[in-house]
Amino acid sequence: MADTTIPERIPINLVVNGERRALEVVPWTTLLDALRDRLELTGTKKGCDHGQCGACTVLVDGRRVNSCLTLAVMKDGAEITTIEGMARDGTLHPLQQAFIDHDAFQCGYCTPGQICSAAGLLAEGRARDADEIRELMSGNLCRCGAYPNIVAAIEQAMSRS
């Protein structure tokens, strides 16, 4: 490919928060940029763009992943759940409510990623105590330092699910 050529766009389909979305993407477009810039779902955050902070965490086919290191073109046909798809009919997801109850955030920027990651954690069923929650949530940085409250929020959601 010549030095200044833009690669061709490729049509893909994503099922985002239950809704089928068709779009054309250049292969270099990450799932994160597709969500934020193309689908205007800015709830998913970009904090490092290198898989080092977890702010971009979404669920792809039910599993938590870093959307910043995921090429959208490779997820053709996948089901994506973002923070915008967590609440149902105006009712907050138990994790969302627990995050409010326990003041598990301050600036709110890591929060969507924390909540999606916690949803993945609950689905995995591998965390049985606070230490395991801490370890399995360590892929989500929080610079405001809300970690103890995040653990408490997840424990609340775990006990109620």
Binding site: L41, G43, K46, I83, L92, I100, G108
Partner: peptide, 20 residues
């Protein structure tokens, strides 16, 4: 509880790079 909590846990809170 934070009055802006709901906006932050639902992804509705818009930050500087998110306005279109």
């Amino acid at each position: 509880s934070r009055v802006d909590g709901r906006a932050k846990v639902t992804g509705a809170a818009k930050y500087a790079g998110e306005f279109s």
